[in-house]
């Protein structure tokens, strides 16, 4: 049963996301009357034909923001519990960088994201890069017990992949370089219905798979030895964690660029805010929390006339909040 405080969080995030999506669709440089927006969703013909495209684009980017934010937050939550470190997340551990390197290989090599073959190549390369970094991290975690040292190793992977990407720039054309730099700023816009289907289906599937991690994550708060004695199959769990977090981070990075901050800050907030210690409650709340922040960030991006990159906004909104929350809650909490 969900306790009252967690139920309130579900309602706040759910309503917040809904309101933000509606706002994101209604407001923008082109003002479209609400009645016409409803007509467009009903499939009716409206006065200005261009409005349909505008509404579709606003709706799509809202959905992308919701899924991207949710996916990064859930990936971060799983990694924080597995590595038992509140600073873990796909960005900090170098997983996003691994995905970026995979994307760089393909994009700087001349493939286009708009072609189906190029898109699948980019998804595959991004996932391979993300999972390769996770495997490397898990391999060295056998020799490094300190999770802080492991985070430093993750940061080093990030620098290393950035250096490799710089080398790739040298042989890339101006157009490919420009495409990659723009991609790197992060954005939730530009997906067509076909891409949106792949993006959202992939994320929904992986989030559903993450429900197989509920029991392992509940046990892992006591450490791997304890969770093993509680009946958790550690090797299987490790495999699932690599696969789910690696591909979640990769899908989002491939489509939206390397989005920072959400994957580390939201899981930390949610773990502190929820009353329940059961990940059957924490995972969905982490998804909704991440989705809420992402859609808020996208609204700010659009209010700025699309001049601000998403990454800048997520950091501007979130970093001060998190510092404030940590300072306040650490007065009575141990580090969690």
């Amino acid at each position: 049963m969900i306790v009252k405080r967690d139920a309130i969080l579900f309602i706040i995030f759910g309503m917040g996301i809904l309101l933000a999506v509606v706002m994101n669709i209604l407001y923008g440089a082109v003002k479209i009357p609400a009645a016409d927006v409803i007509s467009i969703f009903k499939g009716e013909v409206v006065e200005n034909a261009a409005w349909s495209y505008i509404i579709e684009s606003r709706f799509f980017r809202s959905i992308v923001a919701v899924f991207a934010g949710g996916a990064l937050s859930v990936a971060g939550l799983i990694l924080q519990v597995y590595f038992r470190n509140p600073l873990a997340g796909p960005g900090v551990l170098g997983i996003t960088s691994g995905a970026s390197l995979g994307v760089a290989f393909v994009v700087l090599g001349g493939a286009s994201m708009s072609s189906v073959l190029g898109l699948f190549g980019i998804i595959g390369a991004g996932s391979a890069g993300a999972i390769a970094v996770l495997f490397l991290l898990l391999f060295i975690s056998r020799f490094i017990k300190s999770s802080v040292t492991l985070l430093v190793a993750g940061l080093m992977f990030g620098y290393f992949t950035a250096a490799l990407i710089n080398i790739l720039y040298l042989s890339a054309s101006m157009a490919d370089t420009r495409a990659f730099v723009i991609w790197g700023l992060g954005s939730f816009e530009g997906l067509n219905s076909h891409e949106l289907t792949i993006f959202s289906t992939g994320i929904i599937f992986l989030i559903l798979c993450s429900f197989f991690l509920i029991k392992p994550l509940n046990g892992l708060v006591l450490g791997q030895d304890y969770s093993n004695s509680l009946g958790i199959h550690i090797k299987r769990t490790k495999f699932l964690i690599i696969l789910i977090t690696g591909v979640l981070a990769a899908i989002v990075t491939v489509y939206c660029g390397p989005i920072g901050f959400i994957g580390i800050a939201i899981p930390q907030l949610i773990r502190r805010m929820t009353k329940s210690k059961n990940h059957s409650v924490i995972i969905p709340l982490a998804f909704l929390g991440g989705a809420f922040l992402a859609i808020l960030a996208d609204i700010v991006v659009r209010l700025s006339g699309n001049t601000l990159p998403v990454n800048t906004v997520t950091a501007l909104i979130g970093a001060p909040i998190i510092i404030w929350v940590i300072m306040n809650m650490n007065k009575r909490n141990a580090e969690i």
């Binding site: 197989f212 509920i214 029991k215 046990g219 892992l220 006591l222 509680l230 210690k277 059961n278």
Partner: peptide, 24 residues
């Protein structure tokens, strides 16, 4: 060692994990 802000009772609850379903 515990990663989380569980109460003593919530740590005790973890002992039931082997008997719980997928949703714990």
């Amino acid at each position: 060692t515990l990663f989380g802000n569980h109460s003593g009772r919530e740590v005790l609850n973890l002992g039931r994990l082997p008997y719980q379903n997928l949703m714990a």
